[in-house]
Design a protein around this nucleic acid. Sequence first.
DNA 1: GATGAAAATGTAATCGATTACATTTCGGGT
DNA 2: ACCCGAAATGTAATCGATTACATTTTCATC
Lengths: 329, 329
Amino acid sequence: MANIQQVAKHAGVSVATVSRVLNGKDKVTAKTKQKVEEAIQYLNYEPSMLGRNLRNSESRIVLILIPTISNPFYFEIIKGIENMALSQNYSILLCETDSKPEKEEIYFDLLRKKMADGVISMDPAVNVETLKELAENYAIIQCSEYGGGIGIPYVTIDSEEASYRAVKHLIQIGHRKIALMNSDEKFLYARERRMGYERALDEHGIPLNGDYIFYTQELGFEQGQLAMKKILQLEDRPTAVFAVSDLLAIGALKEINAAGLNVPKDIAVVGFDKIDFSNMTNPALTTVAQPMYKMGTVAARMLIEKIQGKTVDSVVLGHELVIRESTTG
Amino acid sequence: MANIQQVAKHAGVSVATVSRVLNGKDKVTAKTKQKVEEAIQYLNYEPSMLGRNLRNSESRIVLILIPTISNPFYFEIIKGIENMALSQNYSILLCETDSKPEKEEIYFDLLRKKMADGVISMDPAVNVETLKELAENYAIIQCSEYGGGIGIPYVTIDSEEASYRAVKHLIQIGHRKIALMNSDEKFLYARERRMGYERALDEHGIPLNGDYIFYTQELGFEQGQLAMKKILQLEDRPTAVFAVSDLLAIGALKEINAAGLNVPKDIAVVGFDKIDFSNMTNPALTTVAQPMYKMGTVAARMLIEKIQGKTVDSVVLGHELVIRESTTG
DNA sequence: GATGAAAATGTAATCGATTACATTTCGGGT
DNA sequence: ACCCGAAATGTAATCGATTACATTTTCATC
């Protein structure tokens, strides 16, 4: 547990020289460098980031805000962020907010107290006012979800278009009675996905049926089951369901099976996100793939640039419809 | 972005007094306290943890080492750790090692550089030698996985007993040809689970059949599929499969379905861990529930006590067999 | 109002690094 | 041998808090 003073003393040089060897940007003679390195070896010295961070007024930590760790949707994004961050010597603090303002505040406080250099928010339920306020003084990027027009840079996909394509696929394979399992429209992406749904119907001359649109409070498996229960009770039962998350879709799948019906023969199902599990279900799920890893790396790069004081622009990434058994049997 | 000096000046007191108000343990007059609080308000002051951490030689961050974030097994444990940690004013840094020593080293370095106060390791592939060495100077707890007899406190379940009960359940509902889908026996828990399997067979007079034991490199879905493929090709096909992780079991499930066979009629399946998804499959999976949330809180409490210099003892928690459709239809 | 112990507050060292600026050393040219 | 600029190294301030110890204030008591 030696410090830089002791290393300097042992090497017979000043702390400045030790620091220079450590950081390697200022010049030191090969000979002194060796002396210092020997002392470091000998004393088993590891520079303390506490001292360095204070001096540099940085923590080299970035926060990732997610509503819950249980949604596999975030896995690849997080990996993307992590790898990019690590390559730039940042570590990531994963923050589960449970969509609760109290927990959100705990993590925002880390930012205010300089324990974190920036935030990547993926929580759609984040308090936009607080975020806007924080963005004036701190580096903040929104990833996947974004509040819309608040001047915080974001990286996301074109939800409207993705939704449009998913529904169009269902129409093209012959469906006309298509239910939409959406999340609460207080979220921008939910509104966008409904618009895509409507545009696809409209374009193919299918009248909009309000009874076919369902809203769920969260994007989980249970909510999917519940919504599907309601759909199955409709008099004029849809022949296809488009769910705005894979977990919802997997819930629907299970419920359809439980009712003794077949996917996709009786009801086709499309999900959204292409989480790992969408491939493990029976049948495998047709779904919209978001470029999650890329999204993560892009978000991380943007954040780091923001931290360095550069101005960064928002990014919209592409997506892809992955057609599997739940629509084509 | 005010600092404590400016607050002191503005309030007309010394920095010591401001610090006392901040920490609230030393006494200050109501009047000065108010003055200070007004100054804090006025200047929008937030104490910097960088300064505080340096002075206190702590980071108030704990590391969680997991092989991969994609295995839902860790969710509840992480939640448990997080909640306990937050309640004690610690934040958690989630570290995905991908079971690679290089990544492991990055995170261990954070510990050495005082960026973290302790580690909870859940990586079975962790380098035991390094861990042992680190444990001499730093607070380290092993959670769920443990290297065995290295003097690092751990919290886990009785794997042998859990495995025994799972297999016994299969025997009790009539199975005698039971395959074991195990992971590499370089891991202690894998050896223990095989022992439980053997004990159950032995106790019921069922001879051990080496052809029924399969080893997989990792505990994922694909490995489960692969192993199941091999099992299905056996001449004397087993009527039941016990997999040491739910992901393996889910892979098996999918493969059995793909072969046109029925679970549990043709082949019964038991998993291990009770991850969220074990309930979402069709049929729902019989599995061994580990008390994951509890495990997390216990591990976190142990770690914090270790950080505070106390000595802590290892803990073995209970488990529970959850019987669902994949064995009882 | 003087006294003194207790309570409140202040002073300054400290944690461990980085770095602007000052000083020393080096080496080439004459 | 001497001079001078460049290169290497050293000195000390700095980041922003906490806290041991010193000093001042308060107030009950006589």
